[in-house]
């Protein structure tokens, strides 16, 4: 059986909110190392991969592999009943028909309990190759969101060019062109404001802004976002979850190729 207790319901609320624009139904795969999720959007352009490590919960118990097939809009409806600061406990039997969600207010004076019906989802998993990316950029997550939203007003595509000079996001559309260039800089007082660029060779790729803007729904989960790029492979956009236990929310986006 599964029994996992999250100190802050907010974490799951935000994860579900961040991925529900891309994915309708997906399996939450539970095993002794934690709860994982992998799903593509309907048009197979983007892939979401989430890992909530057992260490993100206290306590966490899962004796055997359990797949929780969940409709995300149904889960959203149930999670609306949870206050952000509630303690959230997820429970399921082996081979379950329902997942049980319990929300406890931090003052412990209210306990809400919901059973969400599960679906049988026949989901194929993709093998994501270990990649040494040519460029990785760590930047404030709200800055990345801002850039994507601003450039979406110009075009549906953005080119991301990373050189030793910095990283340039550029868009060209009917009304004109726009670009934002970021250079590496460290902010000692506010490390979350730093931009770090790790480059082994220059990269230039184009991506759909509609998807990138969708990914940035995860912005409130982490102060930093990491972009990893290599020529001719999908972009990786990564948000760290729940500080320091290597839980993550990753989005992969297939590039636009040719002209």
């Amino acid at each position: 059986m599964l029994e996992s207790r999250l100190e802050q319901a907010d974490l799951l609320k935000k994860v579900v909110e961040a991925i529900s624009g891309l994915v309708n139904d997906c399996n939450f795969d539970c095993n002794d190392s934690g709860i994982a999720l992998q799903a593509m959007d309907n048009s197979h352009v983007a892939l979401v991969s989430m890992m909530l490590k057992a260490e993100a919960f206290s306590p966490y118990r899962c004796d055997r592999n359990i797949a929780l097939g969940i409709n995300l809009s149904s889960l959203t409806k149930v999670l609306r009943a949870a206050q952000s600061s509630d303690i959230l406990t997820l429970k399921a039997e082996d081979a379950p028909d329902v997942v049980n969600l319990v929300f406890e207010s931090s003052e412990k004076d209210r306990i809400s309990e919901y059973d969400l019906k599960l679906m049988d989802i026949d989901q194929e998993h993709l093998g994501i190759p270990e990649t040494e990316y040519a460029a990785s950029i760590s930047m404030p997550s709200n800055e990345f969101q801002r850039i994507c939203k601003d450039l979406m007003n110009i075009s549906e595509s953005v080119s991301i060019e990373c050189t030793k000079e910095g990283v340039k996001f550029a868009a060209a559309g009917d009304i004109g062109t726009g670009s934002v260039t970021l250079k590496q800089h460290s902010n000692v007082d506010k490390p979350e404001q730093s931009v770090e660029i790790d480059l082994s060779e220059p990269v230039a790729l184009s991506f759909s802004l509609k998807y990138l803007v969708n990914f940035t729904k995860a912005t409130s989960l982490a102060s930093k976002v990491k972009l990893s790029l290599s020529n001719e492979v999908p972009l990786l956009v990564e948000y760290e979850l729940s500080g320091g236990n290597s839980s993550y929310l990753r989005f992969y986006l297939a590039p636009k190729i040719g002209d």
Partner: peptide, 14 residues
């Protein structure tokens, strides 16, 4: 611009 590629062209089914 360019043509949108598919994630399936990069990541194989397990």
């Amino acid at each position: 611009g360019g043509k949108q590629s598919s994630i399936l062209g990069f990541f194989g089914k397990k």
